[in-house]
């Protein structure tokens, strides 16, 4: 079984900054981490490999330093990594990103399963996983909380919904996106780290994946960010209630009633 895990480097939560020109997230010069949901995606892939055999490839699109998140993936059990990095990819929205990743997956070839995290914590869109599936015309299972069964032809997974879950079987090849509930990612070992450091990670450009330049980057992105604003600040008039319990509670209920909330 050949499994591709799509991973993203995201800014650390404390460092969100926006480029006033492009209105997109500044990714240069700030601390980046692997998107937390992607760690569950890698673990899910490695567990499948351990159970039925195969190969796990971590794939990312981003600037050259995104290699660090690929190395992280190799540290915890992925066999190899591939980075898509080219100016032509710059400014991609979710349409263009899922197109580029789908081209890379086709280029890798013979892929049975693609696993993504539920969403990335910077964009929060959850659109790239289903987008990849659509570009490849593969089935998908989103918000997967449990993989019940997998064999060479199909995968059975539990999808989390607001009101419960359903159990679905999809034909392979397929794309799944996973939530945190699916597993407990393993702790990196020193041996894994050394193996990851030694690995050569190929960098693929747009031409390497046979992508149509019209569909890449800003050109290939139907959406445009026209402005970004900080959200309206909270009305900074906190009420602190630190008296006796009964008094505090009465006042709290009063605050709620004044706003017709209870």
């Amino acid at each position: 079984m050949r499994i591709v895990v799509c991973v993203k480097q995201v800014p650390g939560t404390h460092d969100a900054k926006i480029d006033p020109e492009t209105k997109r997230i500044i990714r240069e010069g700030i601390k980046v981490v692997i998107n937390p949901f992607d760690t569950y995606a890698i673990e899910a892939a490695v567990q499948i490999k351990e159970e039925i055999g195969g190969e796990v490839i971590v794939l990312s699109m981003g600037p050259s330093r995104a290699i660090t998140v690929l190395r992280e993936g190799i540290t915890v059990g992925a066999d190899r990594g591939i980075l898509l990095s080219d100016r032509a990819f710059g400014g991609s929205d979710t349409w263009a990103t899922s197109y580029a990743l789908s081209r890379a997956i086709e280029t890798i070839g013979d892929v049975d399963l693609v696993i993504c995290g539920k969403q990335a914590i910077d964009g929060d869109t959850a659109q790239v996983g289903p987008g990849i599936a659509a570009h490849l015309s593969w089935p998908q299972a989103t918000y997967v909380m449990d993989i019940a069964d997998i064999n060479s032809g199909s995968l059975t997974a539990r999808r989390m919904h607001e009101d419960g879950w359903d159990l679905c079987a999809v034909k392979l090849p397929a794309v799944i996106t996973v939530v945190k509930d699916i597993n407990q990612p393993r702790v990196p070992t020193l041996k894994g780290r050394l193996a990851a450091e030694k690995q050569e990670i190929p960098i693929w450009k747009a031409a390497d994946i046979g992508a149509d330049p019209e569909r890449l980057g800003l050109n290939g992105s139907p959406t445009r960010v026209v402005k970004t604003n900080p959200p309206q600040g909270r009305m900074k008039k906190s009420v602190v209630l630190d008296g006796p319990v009964e008094q505090s509670v009465r006042r709290l209920v009063q605050e709620l009633r004044q706003r017709s909330l209870v």
């Binding site: 979710t94 929060d124 659109q127 659509a134 989103t142 989390m160 919904h161 607001e162 959406t223």
Partner: peptide
């Protein structure tokens, strides 16, 4: 923007060649 909507609509946006804004 429910679990179902967020699974379904990105597929449609790709197939219909149009832009999609989440959430």
């Amino acid at each position: 923007a429910t679990t179902r909507g967020r699974a379904l609509i990105p597929r449609v946006a790709v197939d219909a060649n149009c832009g999609l804004t989440a959430d």
